[in-house]
């Protein structure tokens, strides 16, 4: 029963960390748009937090370049398990139009494992919300290895793709 409650709560309380790798800000505006009364993602318990230590979901927009790949790795490393990475927009998916640029590494999955890809240039808010909800499917499938507060958390990260 505890397991079900936990899973339910994970799905209903995903906190987002939004990191702009080197986006043109198009996708960023759409991410922020999700917070507005029109889309109101807080309906789903989603909160935009500024801090990897608090976050469950990492939203990345823009292509990764050599300067910020370390930052992306750092942020990812600081997020406690279980966590989901969602790449938003063409650039985050593959590098987009910047793919061949000398300073660009490529899509987010060149650096960290991505769970959900949300295409679009820019990705629409509806698509972003849909992507987040898809990412939550991962939490539903997780087995809960909770061994008491303060204990060691061992997690089988099943869905890394």
């Amino acid at each position: 029963m505890f397991e079900q409650i936990t899973r339910g709560s994970r799905v209903k309380s995903p906190w987002l960390l939004h990191y702009d790798c080197s986006s043109c800000n198009g996708c960023d505006i759409e991410v922020i748009a999700c917070l507005t009364p029109v889309y109101d993602i807080e309906r789903f318990g989603i909160i935009n937090v500024g801090n990897p230590l608090h976050a469950d979901i990492l939203l990345v927009t823009g292509a990764v370049n050599h300067r910020n790949r370390k930052v992306l790795e750092n942020l990812y490393e600081q997020m406690p398990h279980p966590r989901v990475v969602i790449a938003i927009g063409s650039c985050a998916l593959s590098g987009g139009v910047f793919r061949e640029a000398y300073n660009v590494v490529g899509g987010v999955d060149k650096v960290i494992a991505v769970d959900v890809y949300v295409p679009g240039c820019a990705a629409k808010p509806e698509a972003i919300i849909d992507g987040v909800l898809l990412g939550l499917e991962k939490f539903k499938k997780l087995s809960n290895n909770w061994r008491g507060v303060g204990g060691i958390f061992r997690e089988a990260e099943t869905n890394e793709s």
């Binding site: 990191y19 801090n51 230590l53 370390k70 992306l72 490393e77 600081q78 303060g150």
Partner: peptide, 20 residues
């Protein structure tokens, strides 16, 4: 007791805007 058990907690670096 929590502190003693906390020695098994994963220690991460403090938040420094991802630039740590």
């Amino acid at each position: 007791v929590a502190l003693r058990r906390a020695s098994r907690v994963r220690i991460v670096k403090p938040y420094l805007s991802g630039l740590q």
